[in-house]
Simulated scan of single mutants.
Amino acid sequence: MAGDARTRVGGGAAELALMWGGFPPLGAGAGWLLAAAAGWLADLRWVPLRGLFEALSRLPQPQVSIGAAVLGALAGLLLAGAGTAERLTVTVDRERVALRRDGKRQETPRHQVRVVLVDGGDLVLLDGDGGELLRERSELDRNRLRAAFRAHGWPWAEEDPHRAAYRLWVPGLPGLPAGADALLRARERAIERDRRNDARELRRELSRLGVVVRDEERRQYWRLTARAVAPAADQRTAPEPDRR
Rank of each mutant, 00 (worst) to 15 (best):
L123M: 07
P171K: 01
V64I: 14
R195D: 13
A17Y: 06
A85P: 01
G72Y: 08
P231E: 04
Q112I: 01
P239A: 09
G31L: 10
H111R: 15
R185V: 08
R144H: 12
R203I: 02
S57W: 05
D119Y: 03
H111K: 07
G3F: 10
A68Y: 04
W40E: 15
W154V: 03
V211P: 00
A98T: 12
P241S: 11
R58E: 13
V64M: 04
G27Q: 06
V124D: 05
R150Q: 14
L173M: 14
A85M: 15
G81Y: 11
T91L: 11
V170W: 06
R110I: 00
G81R: 14
A238H: 04
D194T: 11
P109F: 06
G22S: 13
N197R: 12
S57D: 15
R150Y: 02
R204Y: 06
R244T: 13
A186R: 13
P174W: 08
R219G: 00
L206P: 00
R185H: 12
A68T: 08
T91E: 15
S207I: 02
A157F: 01
R203C: 10
E159T: 13
P161N: 10
W156R: 06
P171M: 03
R204L: 11
P25Q: 08
L99Y: 07
R137Q: 08
L44M: 14
D160G: 02
R94F: 04
G172M: 13
L173K: 09
D194C: 04
L117H: 06
Q63M: 08
E188K: 03
F149H: 05
V211S: 04
G76V: 15
A28S: 11
F149L: 05
